[in-house]
Amino acid sequence: MNNSLVTLYAAAALFILQPAQQLMAASITRHDQTASGLSGWRVQDENIKVELNPLYKDQVRAFYLGRGFSEALTERIADACVYQAVIENVSDPAGDTRLEVNLPDWRITSGSGPQALRSKESWIEELTAAGANATATLAFKWATFPTQQYFKLTGDYGWGMILFGKQTTETFNLQLQWYIDGEPVEQRVTGLNCPD
């Protein structure tokens, strides 16, 4: 085997292995939300902590009815498999590490193939067209997780609801992606569900 072929094989092996290494970098644990009794997911490595916590439909209803949405529109939101997400930059403060999250990069990977998350902007458009008032849509805008957000400081964190949309299967998988100083990192979380 000549040298260039060896180099080619080595490069290909590295290319194949790299995503696997990224996938193994973070730990995934389940935790109980003591107040609701539901189990959530925690994804963590040396730079990021992600918490994904399912919400009961009644929790979502209570929140959005309280913000001024009609019952019909509140039901539409509650039916969309709503999770509470918290994403934090937990990197070493000395490292000056920039964490960036773009929700359009995330994919639901069960059912009929990878699906992108519906954007909050698209939701706001729909809710406004359906007659939601300005106060309610403003609350929706700020209570849902930002479409794009970067966290420059250790300890910076964002929180907000993520609407995964009505699922056709009992559980679904989620491919997360984030960027550390511009470099993409991926992590798959399996077995998420949508509690009633």
């Binding site: 939300q33 107040a35 609701s36 902590k49 309280g66 509470q84 403060p93 400081l153």
Partner: peptide, 27 residues
């Protein structure tokens, strides 16, 4: 009560209000 549980469950996520080491870098 449901709203209270909702807020309480968010407060239990272990992030809110925790004391981060003060780090300030000029943004």
């Amino acid at each position: 009560k449901i709203l209270q549980i909702f807020v309480a469950s968010l407060m239990c996520l272990g992030v809110f209000g925790k004391s981060h080491a003060a780090q300030l870098t000029r943004e």
